[in-house]
Design a protein around this nucleic acid. Structure first.
Length: 535
RNA sequence: GGUGGCGUAGCCAAGUGGUAAGGCAGAGGUCUGCAAAACCUCUAUGCGCCAGUUCGAAUCUGGCCGCCACCUCCA
């Protein structure tokens, strides 16, 4: 069975075949016993680049969706037997960072560093795996220079002599510790000439002619020195009083798109497997990246361009002006991180997703359902870790192979979780289960593997106490340290039973409440006896 | 204006030619002194609307209506 992915470039689903298809074929369920993965050295490599954040503020819910989605894709590729080299950049030089630095009287670097740390704090809570590499724009300047020079040489870029001008009051930068540079005699901005690249627009499916109508009247002062309104800056000259970098074109700062072109090339090479990001990046960001890279390398920049849909809030686009801008941190103060992850993965990654209070509550309950299943699964498969049930894993793979169909994959997980919970309850309440221990272990292993592959995490069970099934096979049940001993519980239950027999229900309920407060739940059974369990 | 996408139960959401997955919420029931927990059952003759193709369509075609995104910084 093939993994199929939707490629923005071709606007259709394609069979996924990595460029470096060396070594063995990816493993699929049934190829080998259990979940055995191929030997590490034989795994085909997948080179994946995801556009990261501009670090001038806390992450918002849209970022959460994007990075959860690509984390899921990465994990699934790994589960599928690929070795994924995952690179995600930080844009740490940008006008918005500059503005923030100015407001706070800090250096651009200090602002960037702080929000990078905040980024990791948020993403860790969502259980997003760290990238193999986090290149930063400020550390990739040489690669950018090289690329811009190549573009100039090949005639894709042109220089515009820049008058030294001060856009921002220089004194504010001095306060922030910036030492003005000695002005160069001449400095230039460098622009990319879109007309020179015949394929411009191939990724976003646009033609320059079609866009002109919409763009006319929107080109402001920024584009005053451009030859064409769609040309974009590769290098922007800046007054020496402003933060910037020395370059072959004098003092200035890089254009936004060039950094990714340079970093992709520097970290993963000229032709990578997957280039991913939010749908809003298709145009102009990715279109421009592609236009900058391909004429120089002579190779397609990426084999698969993938984009995730947007997150809306109450049906509206999230934006600061609408007042519905929600930071991840605010959301995580209310909802469990895994409930948010569940919410995000219950929608296909390319569809828009609408976050509402009701939807998040449903997801929170859904996570509770999964958690119960996980808890039961942990107990069922502790000890002998069996292979995951083939039927469930095949259903999971079928859903995921179709362009990462997480909603269908989650349906499999929910069915397993509910079944395991039911079986576990049958056991705790009646002392027996419908299914054989072997089947329970396989289903448990399947549930845990599916959820782990989708990037969910849960606490490991700390201690176990052996319990026995009617079938004679042992399971281990979690025990929690409580201050009450079993004998005391039994004694209180006996007291309560006596009270119940005497129809003294208020006393019986008092004892039940007392135990409840200690985390002990009583279950009155048909035969008159009372079971108890610790929470 | 251009481009792309979407419209499936109260809500979320799969399904892309073979007779509507799953979750959340809800209803009824079993059990109980009351509970708790659990278990069982039920909840779209219908997939925006109208035509067409087909033995058969939520799925394909055409038209219409509605919603959204992108075209400007944006995940």
């Amino acid at each position: 069975m093939d993994l199929v992915v939707y490629n923005t470039l071709t606007r259709r689903k394609e069979v996924f075949q990595p460029l470096a298809a060396g070594g063995s074929q990816p493993v699929s369920v049934g190829d080998s016993q259990g979940s055995a993965a191929p030997v590490a050295g034989e795994k085909p490599l997948v080179r994946m680049y995801v556009c990261g954040v501009t670090v001038y503020d806390l992450c918002h819910l849209g970022h959460a969706r994007t990075y959860v989605v690509w984390d899921m894709v990465r994990r699934y590729l790994e589960w599928r037997g690929y070795r994924v080299r995952y690179v995600q950049n930080f844009t740490d030089v940008d006008d918005k960072i500059l503005k923030r630095a100015l407001e706070r009287g800090e250096s651009m670097q200090a602002v960037a560093e702080r929000f990078i740390a905040e980024y990791f704090q948020d993403m860790d809570r969502l259980n997003i795996k760290r990238a193999d590499l986090y290149p930063r724009a400020t550390q990739s300047l040489q690669a950018m220079f090289q690329l811009i020079q190549s573009l100039e040489l090949k005639g894709f870029a042109y220089r515009v002599r820049d008058p030294i001008r001060h856009q921002i009051d220089p004194s504010s930068f001095r306060q922030a510790g910036h030492q003005p540079e000695t002005p160069a005699s001449v400095q230039y901005s460098v622009y990319y000439s879109v007309r020179k690249f015949p394929d411009y627009g191939q990724l976003s499916g646009r033609k320059l002619e079609e866009m002109e109508a919409g763009a006319s009247g929107r080109v402001g002062e920024e584009g005053a020195d451009k030859q064409d309104p769609f040309d974009f800056a590769l290098w922007k000259a800046a007054p020496p009083s402003e933060p910037g970098f020395a370059s072959p074109w004098g003092w200035g700062r890089p254009g936004w798109h060039i950094e990714c072109s340079a970093m992709v090339r520097e970290t993963l090479g000229d032709h990578i497997d997957i280039h991913a990001g939010g749908a809003d990046l298709i145009f102009p960001h990715h279109e421009n990246e592609l236009a900058q890279s391909e004429p120089i390398t002579g190779k397609p920049m990426a084999k698969y361009w993938m984009h995730n849909g947007f997150l809306n809030i109450n049906g509206e686009k999230m934006s600061k002006s609408l007042g519905n801008f929600t930071t991840l941190r605010q959301a995580l103060a209310i909802y469990h991180p895994m409930a948010l992850r569940l919410f995000l993965l219950q929608t296909h990654y390319r569809s828009p997703i609408d976050l509402t209070e009701a939807a998040m509550q449903a997801a929170s309950r859904g996570w509770e359902t999964l958690q119960k299943g996980i808890h039961c699964a942990q107990q069922f498969c502790k000890g002998e870790k069996g292979s995951p049930e083939a039927e469930a894993m095949q259903a999971f793979q079928a859903a995921m192979d179709d362009d990462f169909g997480t909603p269908g994959a989650l349906a499999v997980a929910f069915e397993l979780a509910k079944e395991l919970t039911r079986e576990h309850n049958l056991f705790t309440h009646q002392g027996q289960t419908h299914l054989e221990p072997q089947a329970l272990r396989q289903k448990s292993a399947a549930l845990l593997e599916i959820l782990a592959t989708l990037g969910f995490c849960w606490p490991e069970v700390i201690g176990y106490e052996e319990i026995h099934l009617a079938a004679g096979s042992a399971f281990k049940v979690e025990t929690v340290q409580t201050q009450i001993e079993a004998e005391q519980i039994e004694e209180l239950i006996a007291q309560r039973s006596a009270a119940r027999k005497a129809k003294n229900f208020s006393e019986a309920d008092r004892i039940r409440d007392q135990l409840k407060a200690l985390g002990i739940t009583l279950i009155d059974q048909k035969d008159g006896t009372t079971r108890w369990l610790r929470e």
